[in-house]
């Protein structure tokens, strides 16, 4: 293909600026002296100190990480098995289930959120227990993570050469050994990609968490949302800046990992 022409370059530049304007403004305003409003009053790092002393923010960070790690571990395990099972074994209703798997991918968050809120309320009425808190939050996150992990792992399995597994079988490996030493290493990049996706989905989620968390299980997105509703303050910008920087670092790390795998 030819080099992109001038018009294409110009459009692309404008679009990149458009994509990055919100991220840039949050970062810049986290260093703004002004406590209120969008006017620029001078440079300061005091909001990061305020943030560090903010117990609510620290508790929310802790909750976010607990939910993120726990749900990602469960969803990666269950989702990988599901992706493998759907690709290799048949069961009644599998055709329907394969399509049902796409429902959470496209379903607006709010629908899943109210469905789970309703479900938890009903379960609580019928069986007691299941107070809304970290546990209900983890269960909810795993629910939207499983399909993503399963779909990513399955697409990796579709591209696999069946001869490799047959060879293992010919050499006397049983089904478990073949899975553990041949299939799993081959699909591992897919498993890793699925886990990263699941973790990010958990960290990003606001809507489902908002409806399924309790008073003691506030996560970072919930904290940011309620602060924004009261009026944006510089320490929220500082918190958001740290989250954005974490996302950027994570993305660069994945890109770098993928590139180094390609070259070796």
């Amino acid at each position: 293909m030819k080099q992109p022409n001038l018009i294409l370059r110009l459009i692309a530049t404008v679009l990149y600026l458009f994509l990055y304007a919100p991220l840039a403004v949050v970062i810049v305003y986290s260093f703004n002296t002004a406590r209120f409003g969008a006017g620029w009053h001078g440079f300061t790092t005091q909001w990061y100190a305020t943030l560090w002393a903010n117990d609510q923010a620290l508790a929310a960070t802790k909750n976010t990480l607990i939910v993120g790690v726990a749900s990602t571990v469960i969803a990666t395990l269950v989702g990988t098995l599901l992706g493998y099972g759907l690709n290799r074994f048949q069961f009644p209703g599998q055709r329907w289930f394969q399509w049902f798997l796409y429902v959470p991918v496209f379903l607006p968050d709010i629908v899943l959120a109210v469905a789970l809120l309703l479900f938890y309320t009903l379960a609580q009425k019928c069986f007691g227990g299941l107070e809304r808190g970290l546990l209900t939050l983890i269960l909810a996150h795993v629910t939207f993570q499983i399909p993503f992990v399963a779909i990513v792992v399955r697409s990796r399995l579709v591209g696999l050469d069946p001869a490799l597994e047959e060879a293992a079988g010919d050499l006397g490996a049983n089904a478990w050994q073949t899975f553990r030493w041949v299939t799993l290493p081959l699909i591992f990049p897919g498993v890793l990609a699925g886990a990263m996706l699941a973790f990010t989905l958990s960290l990003d989620d606001f809507v489902v968490s908002f409806f399924t968390s309790g008073p003691g299980s506030t996560t970072l997105p919930i904290l940011i949302y309620s602060s924004v509703k009261r009026g944006i303050t510089p320490d929220i910008n500082a918190l958001s800046t740290l989250i954005v920087l974490a996302s950027v670092t994570g993305t660069l790390l994945i890109t770098w990992l993928q590139r180094s795998r390609k070259t070796t």
């Binding site: 990149y16 994509l19 990055y20 304007a21 919100p22 991220l23 403004v25 949050v26 305003y29 409003g37 969008a38 006017g39 990010t200 960290l203 990003d204 606001f206 997105p221 940011i224 949302y225 924004v228 944006i232 958001s240 989250i243 954005v244 996302s247 950027v248 994570g250 993305t251 660069l252 890109t255």
Partner: peptide, 26 residues
């Protein structure tokens, strides 16, 4: 990667940032 970064960044943050960008004095 420059397209992927916003994709992986919190939607809530990218949205409330427009409140700052579209505020009266911006």
């Amino acid at each position: 990667t420059l397209v992927v970064i916003p994709f992986w960044t919190n939607l809530l943050i990218r949205t409330y940032a427009w409140q700052i960008l579209l505020a009266p004095e911006s």
